[in-house]
Design a protein around this nucleic acid. Structure first.
Lengths: 231, 231
DNA sequence: AAATATTTGTCCGTATGTATC
DNA sequence: TGATACATACGGACAAATATT
């Protein structure tokens, strides 16, 4: 009796082959993939199978396709993976959501030092304006999810850490569905705390900045674990 | 002039809808998805479009399909993604890899305090054994990737933070493909540093534990940014 | 600016192999 | 063994979006 090596399904083989095509030809972001017709002929598969492989790549953010234009290699980006795979089941229960928020807090507190020194004057000006947006949005709607997100993302974007940005972005995406439970008093003080962060940045005072960041996280919803401390 | 809202492509909508179906019905690993035919009818799309969505999920490891049996939800697993998306793209420039290692370092340093107090006596005994495995594997093969991973995962698993575990797991997966460039001298001292971590745990000395963790990360490959410091 | 070609998007039908009862 | 349900795979056809002439 011989070993029954079950061959991999065709669309998975095809996925690998296309991937191999990209790496072996060293295709860069912006480069074109051959047309579906050409790839079908080259790989000897039907158009359906080929599409199942390519659409998978598209949904993972590896390529982007549009009619008349073709299929184009995309730059490195983990956003889709983070949102749809890594944090796939998070929305289901509150414990996971709190874990995510806690991880965000830890990451922001860990990277705040690097962020502080990476921020340019223009970045600080932008942050001042975004803090204004938070206040504005709060006074207008009693809410400020979008502005809050933009503020925090802008704080860490200058670091240029792609993975970190993707991670924070994915967590914020979940956040937007869960922020509804906040109390108004927390929101009010939170508006002020964002302004305190900007003030510290404007004065180029890292210690004040760190204190303001900690204060920001130790309020309201960010209360899963103890706050940041030195050991 | 009205806003030109371009509708998303059907197979992307469908992907989301199926994902929504899984979460809203709270389907667990092992549960069945409806048949292709049934889903086509329910979502009002053709079989091809539906398959492009489902095959994407299969390639991401979210479900598994086979003829005669149907489509089944899979437990959380990033293997395929890591192998076929991350690693493949990461190779373009190892900046991404360094970013991931750095994030791991930050997370481990952030959570070490909670981990320290969450560890039971049995956990420490396990860690002692795993440190032994590291030495053993190193002396036998000159290498210890698997044992290293197991050690670190066991350090933080007792925390019970699902998201954190997933994240660390994902980063380790990339690590295993990239650790090949380490120098032997670093490896030797790294073996000792793992043992130092366990010794601190056995003596229930948080300060020594923290120092050992920092020392561990400040050596060899973990040199992207400055080491952990209080502010 | 308009017509035409190219390329992907979407649908349908059919045959085959596999798992289950 | 046979019958049924299901995913796998192929092919053709037309629509829609984009690029080209």
């Amino acid at each position: 009796m011989s070993v029954n090596q079950k061959p991999e399904k065709l669309y998975i083989q095809t996925f690998r082959q296309i991937r191999g095509y990209i790496t072996s030809k060293q295709l860069q972001p912006g480069d074109q993939l051959p047309t579906e017709q050409a790839l079908c002929a080259e790989l000897g598969v039907s158009r359906n199978v080929l599409r199942e492989a390519i659409k998978s790549m598209e949904l993972m953010g590896m390529v982007s396709a549009s009619p008349g234009r073709g299929t184009v290699i995309q730059p490195f980006n983990l956003d889709f993976i983070m949102q749809n795979v890594l944090f796939f089941r998070v929305g289901e229960d509150d414990q996971r959501v709190r874990e995510m928020f806690d991880i965000r807090r830890m990451l922001e507190m860990s990277y705040m030092r690097q962020a502080f020194y990476a921020l340019t004057k223009d970045d600080v000006i932008l942050l001042r304006r975004l803090a204004g947006n938070i206040r504005q949005e709060f006074e207008k709607t009693g809410w400020f999810t979008a502005a809050d997100r933009e503020f925090h993302m802008s704080l860490f974007r200058p670091l240029g850490n792609t993975i970190l940005n993707s991670l924070l972005d994915a967590i914020w995406m979940v956040d937007e569905d869960f922020q509804l439970e906040l109390k108004r008093s927390h929101l009010e003080s939170s508006v002020r705390k964002h302004e305190a962060i900007v003030e510290a940045l404007e004065q180029y005072d890292f210690f004040a900045f760190a204190k303001a960041m900690e204060a920001h996280f130790s309020s309201g919803k960010y209360t899963m674990a103890q706050t940041y401390e030195e050991y």
